[in-house]
Each structure stands twice: as structure tokens, then as C-alpha cells.
């Protein structure tokens, strides 16, 4: 049995620098964790005595709650810190905040921050494990992992599938992490969205660009429909929500024209009637709530894998054999 300790290293900052094997290790480890959430006592003692700080500089309900459930079901002690109502608003820097937490003897930090690179910045400066829960436009690795798990649950594989990410690719860390993860696991990846919301040169990542949603639907096995951030309207990227829905919306009428079943993912929270229609979101091929369930399992797996001892100590301990 492969017993390499801490197979992810100290931190999970993004999927860009993980190997396919590491991604598969996380997905495989998530499988048994699904069952724990079905138990009457939804808790295993594996992270007992570990202290985890959820440091959220941006508003988040779903991701924070999902991490918190994952932590609690592994028996870790958790503290939530959000930007409003903390010393952050008093002008403390990120590193000072983290060092103060370190001084209180913590083991892990889950960080959500508006600045790209914030997670790596923190990871390089504190000894605790750092998990990126979304940093600026950079990455949101656990979201992509739960998307990968959900896709694999439905097809039994990821390799060879055609996955199209639809919407605001430019501002989306979900899109970036998904592209890295899907390509490493052998999927074909495309993006589709308004030209103002596609990053220039995105093809260089190895993805196809569709200029019309109908073409994307005709091609894809899976559509990952991103949330349209409504503040993009003020910034002048889009003329109107109504027009967005008419041109780019994933509607049942458009899906019916494809002569196959397409799996529908959405990272939430949804703007019903904008990027996705209600009958699609609630339809038979939508796995949006499965994604939420898988999110807890995937985060449990990541926390569990990061929590292990240092590799050298693991080697020493192996000499003792097992009982």
C-alpha cells in the first residue's frame, strides 16, 4: 500500500502545480469520506486536537460552511474570522493577522482573499498548512476538485470527456482551477462566453474557445455554468442581464437541440434566469446539489491529506510496523 505521508505537501494553493496522480489521490480519498456524512454520528476522530482557522476576507457562505462541516466532521476545532468585524478593518496586514493566529498555536488556515496570490503569500510565511478557498482571479482548487469528483461520479471517468466552462472566464478562479484539473486528468476543455469576459490568449492553456453557446452545447458532454457576477454590469462588460440570458443563457430549449444528455454543473450561487434557467437547474441532468454534497467530502480529503506528519517522521514510524 502506498503510505507516502503528506502526499500533497504542506499547502493546497492551486491545482496548477499538482500532478494527475495527486489529483486522483484526493478524489480517491474523498470517496470514503462521503459515507461519513451519511452516518448518524457524522464525525470521525482523525483531526482531533487540530485547530483550523477559516480566514475569510471576502464574503462566502457556501464555501465557508462546506469547509466548516468538513473540519467538524473530522473532529478539528475551528474558528471563523471574517474581514468585517475583525482587526483586518483596523488596517492589520495579512501576515500580521496570520502571525497573531500562529501565536495562538493553530495548525491550519483556510483562506479566502480578494487578491490573487494571497494564499501562496501566506503559505510561504507561516508554518501552518494553508488551504486556498479562493484567491482573487487566481484559483479555487477545492471547487474544481468537487467538480471533478462530481463529473467522475457520473461518467466513471474524466479522461476523454468534453467539458465546456460557460460564462465569465475572465474573472473566474473557478474556471482557472477547473481548466488545470480537467486537462491534467485528460479531459478536453472548452470555454464559452462573451468576448469581453474571455481572457486574451486563453487558447494557450490548451482550451478551445466557442463563440456561440449553441456550438458549445453541440460539442460538450458536460457544461460547467459559472455564476455571472452582477457587478460586472456596472463595470461595462455587459449591456444587460436580459441580453446575457438571450445570447449566453443555458436554457432547456438550447439543450433540447443537442441530441444527447449533457451534465450540468454550477458552482453556485445561481442567478436563475440569467446564466441558467430554472428548468435546467432543477432538471434531471443537473448535479448542482451533488456538487454541494461532494464539496464536503473533497474538503475532508484535502484536510486529511494535508494534516499528516512530515515525510521523514512517517518513514521512521514505518519501521515500527503496524498492529
Amino acid at each position: 500500500m502506498n503510505r507516502t505521508a503528506s502526499s500533497l505537501g504542506k499547502d493546497l494553493v492551486g491545482l496548477e502545480h499538482l500532478s494527475a496522480q495527486q489529483l486522483l489521490t484526493i478524489l480517491d480519498t474523498a470517496e470514503p469520506f462521503k459515507e461519513i456524512s451519511e452516518r448518524r454520528i457524522k464525525k470521525v476522530p482523525v483531526l482531533r486536537g487540530k485547530t483550523i482557522v477559516n480566514l475569510f476576507f471576502e464574503p462566502s457562505t457556501r464555501t465557508r460552511v462546506s469547509f466548516e462541516f468538513a473540519e467538524k466532521r473530522l473532529s478539528a476545532d475551528t474558528v471563523n474570522i471574517s474581514a468585517s468585524g475583525s482587526s483586518v478593518v483596523k488596517g492589520e496586514t495579512l501576515v500580521d493577522t496570520a502571525r497573531n493566529l500562529e501565536a495562538m498555536k493553530i495548525d491550519m488556515v483556510v483562506i479566502r482573499h480578494g487578491a490573487s496570490g494571497a494564499a501562496r503569500f501566506l503559505a510561504e510565511r507561516i508554518p501552518s498548512n494553508v488551504v486556498n478557498a479562493g484567491d482573487g482571479r487566481h484559483e479555487h482548487p477545492t471547487q474544481a476538485l468537487l467538480d471533478l469528483l462530481t463529473i467522475r461520479d457520473n461518467f466513471g471517468r474524466i479522461e476523454g470527456l468534453k467539458v465546456c466552462i460557460v460564462g465569465d472566464i475572465l474573472h473566474s478562479r473557478v474556471a482557472r482551477s477547473n481548466i488545470y484539473g480537467l486537462l491534467k486528468l485528460g479531459a478536453e476543455v472548452a470555454v464559452c462566453g462573451p468576448p469581453t469576459l474571455l481572457p486574451r490568449g486563453i487558447e494557450q492553456l490548451g482550451v478551445t474557445v466557442f463563440k456561440r453557446i449553441e456550438e458549445a452545447i453541440a460539442w460538450a458532454d458536460v457544461l460547467n455554468v459559472l455564476r455571472l457576477q452582477l457587478e460586472r454590469m456596472q463595470a461595462g462588460f455587459l449591456p444587460s442581464l436580459r441580453e446575457y440570458n438571450q445570447v449566453w443563457g443555458v436554457t432547456s430549449r438550447r439543450l433540447e437541440e443537442a441530441e444527447k444528455e449533457i451534465l450540468i454543473l454550477h458552482p453556485g450561487p445561481m442567478n436563475r434566469g440569467v446564466e441558467i434557467d430554472s428548468d435546467v437547474a432543477d432538471g434531471p441532468h443537473s448535479v448542482i446539489l451533488d456538487q454541494v454534497t461532494n464539496g464536503v467530502a473533497v474538503r475532508m480529503a484535502v484536510l486529511y491529506l494535508l494534516a499528516g506528519g512530515e515525510p521523514e517522521r512517517a518513514e521512521d514510524a514505518k519501521q515500527g510496523g503496524e498492529a
Binding site: R3, A5, D28, E35, V46, A317, E322
Partner: peptide
């Protein structure tokens, strides 16, 4: 029954990537 998540040596042996299912 898979006892991986109930072991008392996670921090010395390191996590087992292969967690079985109970």
C-alpha cells in the same frame, strides 16, 4: 470496518492515502 480514520498514529505515521470504506 475500516479503522483508518480512528488510528492513534496519524501524526506519526502520516495519513494513508487509501482510506477504505466501512
Amino acid at each position: 470496518i475500516d479503522i483508518t480514520l480512528y488510528r492513534d498514529d496519524l501524526l506519526t505515521v502520516g495519513p494513508r492515502p487509501v482510506v477504505g470504506e466501512t
